[in-house]
């Protein structure tokens, strides 16, 4: 996720007209995929060396429960809820939506990233992030 975010400046610098060319789209895709692979490869290597699989949850097979998401609890729970513990994020989210509305693709990409992160957090067995005392995200 961080690698994808780091590559955003390269994408945003692309002029609107040039972005329609396939070659430029390829450069943009590479600007996302290459940093992602570079950053993720050491973690994948450690996973394979220690646990025997590239993509694996170290906490065990039952740690993630895709069929039981606690979507509403992650942002609003009294226990480490994102907006409960950091209410300033509510107006920040509203302003982000207003700011990004003219850039629809950007809004869609960041919205999907946010929703994906929310879903992954919500399906963890310890969706309240266990012992950390702040908000979960």
């Amino acid at each position: 996720m961080s690698a994808v975010l780091l590559s955003l400046p390269a994408i945003l610098r692309c002029p609107p007209g040039a972005c329609r060319k396939w070659s430029t789209i390829g450069v943009q895709a590479a600007a996302v995929i290459v940093p992602l692979l570079v950053v993720a490869s050491p973690v994948l290597f450690v996973n394979h060396y220690v646990l025997g699989q590239l993509l694996v949850v170290p906490q065990g097979r039952n740690y993630l429960r895709p069929a039981s998401p606690m979507i509403h609890r992650v942002p609003f729970s009294h226990r480490n809820g994102i907006f409960t513990y950091c209410p300033i994020l509510l107006p920040a989210l509203r302003q982000s939506l207003i700011t990004l509305t003219p850039r629809r693709w950007m809004l869609a990409a960041m919205g999907m990233a946010l929703l994906a992160q929310l879903y992954v957090n919500s399906i963890a067995l310890e969706w309240w992030a266990a012992t950390p005392s702040g908000s979960v995200a």
Binding site: V43, V50, L51, G52, Q53, P58
Partner: peptide, 18 residues
């Protein structure tokens, strides 16, 4: 211990360590 590698597991991914 991992059944595949025979090594003790670690709950924490290595990203922060990097």
């Amino acid at each position: 211990v991992s059944k595949i590698t025979g090594r003790p597991t670690n709950l924490f991914p290595g990203g922060v360590a990097l």
